[in-house]
Design a binder for these strands. Structure first.
Lengths: 212, 212
DNA sequence: ACATCTTTTGAGAGTTACTGTCATTTGACG
DNA sequence: CGTCAAATGACAGTAACTCTCAAAAGATGT
């Protein structure tokens, strides 16, 4: 019935069995229904049962696809992209520079539909404390992965303190930039551009040192 | 029945009515019972009902004192101390330096009992994902408060981007330092000392810039 | 086209973290 | 000691999960 948006996300192989295709469909159906209900009536006000109903699946199925209600909003597949991109940076590039590039590239890759969805997600996360909390955690989980790659690239132990500090700082700053944008510009397109700029500025501050 | 530990925490006024004293007592009773059960059988494995039982209060009462189970582990009163201390720093001191001082002073003030409790808390937080998540959030909440004070001190708007970036970086780094220590040294006293040093090093990196 | 095997789904029962209400208890105070 | 306000406990209800098991549906070989 619908086939537009999945083209780029399903980039891997067009050779998918009916089973796999259906899985992707249900996943999207659940997410769409959820986003719609969340924006209409609010996150807390929409029980999972109603989402299931709207997506025309059983509650069990919803929980099979998303272990928690929060995951419906939070789960994404950017980690792998990020890690791969980081590995591709030249080895002599300073880590903060690499991180900056990789993050900015990621944001720029978002197509129109993805952008709009991203804004919905961000405002939801902004408003619901539970989502904020879990997002911070998933970011620091991503951070641990990034730190591993960085450590590997500079021949350090995976738990090297300095690497972790760098990543911690970058992510702390990133989150701040993200929320800063979500705060001001719920205003469509400009918001994303502003976000890129914010990230850029923040990273500059980090590599120059924080005098302020 | 018990009155030893509350001496320093109750520093404000010894003029407490029986009511207030009992409130403090129950609060401590609940927390102690919870910590004991958590370390004995694990956080997820101990329902609130059992905590209530062990603390000899009703489940309702537990929820009255701690809105969520997570709050039993996470709630503390350091924010006010931190903010007050930050306000007391000389105005010409660079913000990162102020933050460093204020944070280190806080850690140094901890007495023996408080230190041990702190370690229990940290390892719990480390192990339980839900606690990790909510801790990140409460830290960024604290961050917002710190940012306000810093902005005020340098005549900026409370949402000033640079201030938020600075605070974001400092807190990101702080969390990393905290977890780093909790990771390695569950080893009693040395852990806290190591923590102070970690914070110190991390802050140094921040103000010098992140070249690595 | 059919039989079989595997994966996905739905139904239902159970647990637990909360929320709200209301009657009872208990410290505060004149 | 009586009265008022605050703290407590008992209870009912909701919603997010978890587990189990049987039915439905896609994959696979003949």
């Amino acid at each position: 019935m619908r086939s537009m948006a999945s083209a780029r996300t399903t980039s891997a192989r067009p050779k998918l069995g009916l089973r796999e295709r259906k899985k992707i469909q249900t996943r999207q159906a659940i997410r769409r229904a959820a986003y719609r209900l969340f924006t209409e009536q609010g996150y807390d006000a929409t029980p999972v049962d109603r989402i299931a109903e709207a997506a025309d699946v059983s509650p069990s199925t919803v929980f099979r696809y998303f272990p928690t209600k929060e995951d419906i909003v939070l789960s994404d597949e950017y980690d792998d992209v990020l890690l791969a991109a980081l590995r591709d940076r030249p080895l002599d590039e300073p880590p903060v520079a690499s991180l900056r590039r990789v993050l900015l590239d990621l944001f720029r890759q978002f197509a129109g539909d993805e952008r709009r969805e991203m804004l919905v997600r961000l405002t939801l996360i902004r408003q619901v404390p539970g989502l904020r909390a879990r997002m911070s955690e998933s970011m620091s989980r991503t951070g641990a992965l990034l730190a591993e790659v960085l450590a590997e690239r500079s021949d350090r132990s995976p738990e090297d303190f300095e690497v972790r500090v760098v990543v911690g700082a970058v992510l702390g700053v990133l989150q701040e930039a993200l929320f800063h944008c979500a705060d001001q510009g719920a205003a469509e397109d400009s918001a994303l551009a502003a976000m890129e700029e914010s990230i850029d500025r923040a990273m500059d501050m980090l590599s120059r040192g924080l005098p302020l």
